[in-house]
Amino acid sequence: MSVPSDKVGKRYPPLTYAVGREKIREYAAATGFEHPLHHDLDTARAAGYADLLAPPMFVVVYCASLFQAALFDPELEIDFAHLVHGGQAFSWQQPVLAGDEITTTLTVKDISERAGLRFDTFETVSVNQRGERTAVGTWSTIIRGEEH
């Protein structure tokens, strides 16, 4: 199994995602987030928001294509047949609203091997159009060796 630990520290070009009102409604409906702040504009505005509020886990929508791009980076030599998503962590800062533009940067934080398993960790840092941080993500994958 290849373990290209010299790629730790690699950063990918930032990606900007425009948050749409209907995308928030679609994501919230698909995951069961029924709070009216995600669905009803009048409720959101009455609560002081300019537009619909994204559920916290909407972070995966604005980070996903960057994470996928990293997984497909040939320099990381990822064996997809044996890849599993082992863990995930997020911390949230500023709220995300429809109309926001969120820019995310992804960095390779760790590539290491233990007991025949390869552990990769990626970090995403996302900021809104005012430069305020919205979320930090830690994405952990495990690649099993052929013998596992």
């Binding site: 559920p55 916290p56 995930q88």
Partner: peptide
């Protein structure tokens, strides 16, 4: 897996009275 994580997030915000902004950190193992 991230759909299942969203259900965990929902359980947590529900426990805090439903406020979606109550959740400031969540980590999981799949």
């Amino acid at each position: 897996g991230l759909w299942s994580m969203a259900q965990v997030a929902r359980a947590a915000t529900d426990a805090a009275g439903g406020d979606p902004l109550a959740l400031t950190e969540l980590s999981v193992q799949f």
